[in-house]
Simulated scan of single mutants.
Amino acid sequence: MPQRSGPRIAVIGNCQAVGTAQVLRLLLPDARVETHAIGRLARQFRDLDGLVRHLRGADHVFSHFFPGGFLPGGNVLALQTRVPHLRLFPTIVFPAFHPDLVYVGDVASLRLSTLVHGPLGPSHSAIALCGFLEGLGVTATLGLYTDAVFERLGYGRAWEEGAAHLLAAAREMQFGLEPEFARWSRRGCFMHDAHHPRLPVLGDIARRLATEAGLKPLDLRVEDYLPDTLVDEAMWPVYPAIAERYGVPAQTLFRARPVRGRPPRMLDLPGFVSESFAVYARLPRERLVCARIAAWRADPGIRALFASAGGA
């Protein structure tokens, strides 16, 4: 295979950065594209000075936001002051198709190691966790997965609120996504779960990065040429009531992250809730921290909703 001799591009970020870099390699056949995971920056470069030295040889640097604590010496904004050609690009988070998904534990740290892991890794059902903390059993909790309950819990506002947050965050880093979001919305369900977009979304992000950097990406549909690497993450279903709301296909099975060489492990809703309860029962309650659940449990109306399910 001939060596690439074009521009050197560094992509820094979370799991979405891997797919973005993969698309850049496709669209820019001569580019030399490298990926650096935020969680491994300290191991790779020791501190901010080490990363700055490495990036000085890059023609283009594209990065997700990362806070302090990942790399001694500063966060991504400190990095940008020393690498002026660094371009921030947004992480795509959109919960409308999967509004029940929450993370549990120290979410603010942005580290997977600080999160509680259940049957699907770090992603949990807010209804299941609240049901457990309110003393419901599995059967009673399953009775809460209805459109009426979803509406009372605010899931019907997830599109409006999620779009507003995503678009505002993108504008803040001078990467407005209004045209792209309109296009994604017409495609149906464009997320694997609330935190993992499908490949065409990453394709649009990568094409924007390349074009606005003055490069000339190939004009092709990336999904026709590349595998979707985020399919290898755990997959969350679109509950039937949510699917009907948005006119997309319903899904009823949860899929754990595949283990190489083995068929994927699938769980229906009763199996997922049952296994989640088993995980929660083994943990001290102080580890079951989730801002959404705390807000629900502080709301007398929502607590009454869960209590009525327990008395049914």
Results as ranks from 00 to 15, higher is better:
residue 234 A to W: 13
residue 235 M to R: 15
residue 170 A to Y: 00
residue 160 E to Q: 15
residue 255 R to E: 14
residue 228 D to Y: 11
residue 170 A to G: 07
residue 205 I to V: 10
residue 237 P to F: 02
residue 168 A to K: 02
residue 231 V to H: 13
residue 170 A to T: 04
residue 196 H to I: 03
residue 214 G to M: 03
residue 253 L to R: 15
residue 212 E to S: 12
residue 175 F to R: 04
residue 254 F to Q: 04
residue 257 R to I: 08
residue 161 E to G: 08
residue 176 G to E: 05
residue 226 L to F: 10
residue 203 G to T: 07
residue 160 E to R: 12
residue 186 R to K: 15
residue 228 D to E: 01
residue 177 L to H: 11
residue 192 H to Y: 10
residue 143 G to W: 13
residue 243 A to C: 09
residue 212 E to I: 00
residue 230 L to S: 06
residue 184 W to E: 01
residue 233 E to Q: 14
residue 149 V to G: 04
residue 201 V to I: 06
residue 156 G to N: 13
residue 260 R to E: 12
residue 243 A to H: 07
residue 176 G to N: 09
residue 217 P to E: 02
residue 191 M to D: 01
residue 164 A to D: 13
residue 206 A to H: 08
residue 231 V to S: 12
residue 167 L to M: 03
residue 249 P to S: 02
residue 213 A to Y: 12
residue 149 V to R: 08
residue 199 L to W: 00
residue 181 F to M: 11
residue 167 L to G: 05
residue 260 R to H: 13
residue 166 L to C: 00
residue 239 Y to T: 02
residue 146 T to H: 15
residue 179 P to A: 05
residue 147 D to A: 15
residue 169 A to Q: 12
residue 214 G to D: 08
residue 196 H to F: 00
residue 259 V to I: 14
residue 185 S to E: 14
residue 147 D to P: 11
residue 242 I to T: 01
residue 148 A to Q: 14
residue 237 P to V: 03
residue 229 T to A: 11
residue 250 A to R: 00
residue 189 C to M: 03
residue 230 L to K: 07
residue 222 V to M: 05
residue 216 K to S: 15
residue 168 A to H: 04
residue 215 L to I: 11
residue 191 M to T: 01
residue 201 V to F: 07
residue 221 R to W: 06
residue 155 Y to Q: 03
residue 164 A to I: 09
residue 197 P to N: 03
residue 243 A to E: 09
residue 228 D to T: 08
residue 234 A to C: 14
residue 149 V to C: 03
residue 157 R to Q: 14
residue 172 E to P: 04
residue 165 H to V: 12
residue 251 Q to L: 10
residue 236 W to P: 06
residue 150 F to R: 03
